[in-house]
Design a protein around this nucleic acid. Structure first.
Lengths: 196, 196
DNA sequence: ACTGATACTGGACACACTGTCCAGTATCAT
DNA sequence: ATGATACTGGACAGTGTGTCCAGTATCAGT
């Protein structure tokens, strides 16, 4: 048994559990899901679940990590086409969010905001990195504050956008977001309504 | 029995429960608390709890509503001293947050972000109102987006500020926040570090 | 195809928390 | 003093968690 490789059965079971979690999260939201729900959906014994993950949260973390690999791959090419002004992350994320909209609705929507910390952390790193590029690598307090500012604003805007039956395209919402981020509220609010 | 007035015993019990919730939330965070915990801390029978509130969430809502009345009172006077540029809400909220810091830490901090929707809604109304004043009452989509943008940014910045052993005063963090909000990232990041 | 290792299964278990109910007791307002 | 109302503690069923185990299926290597 080669140390690194994984038993087919293990891969199969984990994949089933992760997909079940994904489906159920989109359907009813993370907190409302029980381990039993997941196992029923995945058609896996409940005791089996615990041989793979100590609890629901670990499964979520594993699922997200897996999911992020896909996004990370496309991240490499994106990195080259950095525009002069603006974040490179926001546009693609808006698009990706729209594509997996049901997921995001269930994840952030309704009464609970349950956006997992893994995703927030991922976005944070993107933002900090891009901001650091703008000012040269100083890494001071203001950079940190600005990062937090942008990340919080971004999630809130995205949340609103997904919640609505949106008429704005990813490109449009992205443009407004970037305008707010870089030029501030004054630039967006004071002007007459003119999107493009 | 006059319809409007409240039995002493009722007032006493509710007050105890709310204060117990407040203390426990500051201590271990909202989700970790059980109804039994609250009753033990409040020295109230568990069955009594359910004659007043259907569950933990309702108690929280009631507690917050009560708490907000105090803030609302000071809100009236604050309303008059609106500065030419900037939000009138942010400074006082930063101060209030610092005063009840342990509470906020437990509420928003650690692994879970459990800032209750009531507070978020309250801040949102403030922001929307103040932004509407700036642009005249148009109430378009851009106003809504800007509101969300600011609210998200505000909570994230406040969260960061409270989490740290902060060296920044409420006035200082407020100033940076306002600068980011009104003039955008460029104005804050690009310049050399100069706070006052 | 055989075999030892490993993974899956279903069921039982103790535990923790929830929400309901009720009879007994304390406290209220008048 | 008294009738109304609130509190109490304990019992109850229900649901979800996490652990354990003996039996069964599937794996990889020879």
């Amino acid at each position: 048994m080669p140390a690194g490789s994984i038993d087919r059965r293990v891969a199969r079971t984990r994949s089933r559990l992760q997909q079940a979690l994904f489906r159920l999260t989109a359907e009813k939201g993370y907190t409302a899901i029980t381990v039993e729900d997941i196992c029923r959906e995945a058609d896996v014994g409940r005791s089996t679940f615990y041989t793979h993950y100590p609890d629901k949260d670990y499964l979520r973390k594993a699922t997200i990590d897996e999911h992020m690999k896909g996004l990370q791959a496309r991240g490499a090419e994106r990195h080259s086409q950095r525009n002069a002004k603006g974040f490179s992350f926001s546009g693609p994320v808006f698009e990706h969010a729209l594509a997996t909209r049901e997921m995001h609705r269930a994840l952030m929507g309704g009464k609970k905001r349950e956006m997992p910390e893994e995703i927030r952390g991922w976005i944070s790193r993107q933002v900090r990195h891009e901001l650091a590029n703008i000012q040269g690598d100083e890494g001071g307090v203001r950079l940190e504050i600005a990062t937090r500012f942008i990340v919080g604003a971004f999630f809130e805007v995205m949340h609103w956008w997904l919640e609505r039956d949106t008429k704005l395209s990813p490109a449009e919402i992205d443009q407004i977001f970037l305008q707010l981020a870089f030029n501030g509220v004054n630039a967006v609010i004071a002007e007459p309504t003119r999107i493009e």
